[in-house]
Design a protein around this nucleic acid. Structure first.
Lengths: 247, 247
DNA sequence: GCATTCCAGTTGTAGGATGATATGTATAAC
DNA sequence: GTTATACATATCATCCTACAACTGGAATGC
């Protein structure tokens, strides 16, 4: 039986599709920890791809700590305790609506991050955030320099929460978004909107200075929704509305 | 010139050795971000291995976000901060207060997840969540089976948000916490608290059935704070208080 | 009964062939 | 001279076959 791999119109590479399929089977429990994966030969026939492709797919699973291959025997499914990495690959990012979901996640993390930062920030944090803001405002056009400064602004806020995990996660998510925007090569007239963008950042900064968590959260939420909008991503409004209803 | 690969007493596979070598070259700055890797052919000759091995090595680097391969051109070295993967190693997890930070992150993600799920859940999601809840209540003692069911409960809620990234992040964070608890081998009398734990889950479930985002969020927040407390982790109360003030 | 040998199955590696894609170049048309 | 088209080249992506290394168990010999 030849398994049809998802993704008809996509451009994903074959190894990635195979890895994604197996990964889902493991996550869903169809393949129990300790059990053996089908042989490379079988998988090759099942998916209608070469053994080479299967090997690359398994190598990816192994890198993620999901399976362990042993020569002469096969690949064992490992227990989830041993997984130590989270990964978002570019192929899945390119699939249309994923951007929307990523922005949604970012909105959640950053809104709380801003609120926490408003409570916990010290003077050195404010200084670092202000420095990033100045670098951003200095640029007349929206180009690489100001994008770096923008990211730095958000990362400094995350750092001010004092929670390194929040910092790590936000850095990661922001980087994913920046990259996918870069690859999408959006041709929007972003340059005209620099003032809007800077203005949103200023409001966040002022709320942080004031030490007002609710205001910081609201300002950040508005900023993320605006940023998503500027790259053509419409966030589901329910979250925003509920947040607005609160403040 | 044939390059000698490290590996004196090692038994590591060739692709891993090649990947490690290239990885070190990138880390050390010998290969600048933006530059092209040598072609597969050249690497194959340089290391004295087959192109197949080189391809698997590059696939590994790509999976870690260190390079990006583009058909017809080559593999570009990406900037180090552009990692496509997050890794959290066990050593950092063991350091005391990291648990507290991890729970804080979990609280943020899961609270919003519950709220979103309350808005978006379909009947099949409720069924899956209920099934996990039943499995959990069925157990008399707090052991592996019920821990699995507990995790499943949370992951099913995350799945009901319809946002695969939220699902991924929550699965990851929960797994990290479960793992560190497992390794810590806490000897608390957890068994006595099963009813409390199940009760908290029931309240979350009821809020989801009712489709009440605010209630779901509050119940989840209370649950996470309680769960943290039961393993001896005190969450900073500020977040919880602010949340309470809203509902 | 026990050790040894052999064999089938599986992963690991090698190397070539072909398809898909990007880039540069030369040729032709205007 | 400029543009456009076609071609050649370089590279990754995939497929294929073959063989080496390793494992587990079955057959064999004693």
């Amino acid at each position: 039986m030849k398994q049809r791999l998802a993704a008809i119109g996509t451009v994903e590479a074959l190894p990635h599709r195979v890895a994604a399929f197996l990964s889902r089977e493991i996550e869903s429990g169809d393949l129990n920890p300790g059990s053996l994966l089908p042989t490379e030969q079988q998988l090759s026939e099942k998916f209608g791809v070469s053994r080479n492709v299967v090997r690359e797919a398994i190598a990816q699973l192994r890198a993620d700590g999901m399976v362990e291959a042993r020569q002469g025997i096969g690949s064992f499914v490992l227990a989830p305790e041993q997984r130590a990495a989270i990964r978002i690959d570019r192929e899945t990012l390119k699939e249309g609506q994923n951007m929307e979901r990523l922005f949604e996640l970012r909105c959640i993390l950053e809104a709380e991050s801003a609120a926490l930062a408003a409570e916990r920030r010290g003077q050195e944090h404010l200084d670092a955030i202000k420095a990033a803001l100045d670098r951003m405002s200095g640029e007349e056009r929206w180009e690489d320099g100001s994008i770096d400064a923008d990211l730095l602004f958000h990362r400094e806020i995350a750092r001010a929460t004092g929670n390194s995990y929040i910092h790590t996660f936000i850095s990661f998510v922001c980087e994913q978004i920046r990259r996918s925007i870069y690859y999408a090569r959006l041709t929007n007239p972003l340059h005209d909107l620099v003032e809007v963008n800077v203005g949103e950042h200023v409001r966040i900064y002022e709320a942080l200075v004031a030490g007002d968590p609710a205001a910081a959260e609201a300002a950040m939420r508005a900023h993320i929704i605006g940023a998503a909008d500027r790259v053509g991503v419409k966030l589901p409004t329910s979250r925003a509305q509920r947040a607005d209803g609160r403040k």
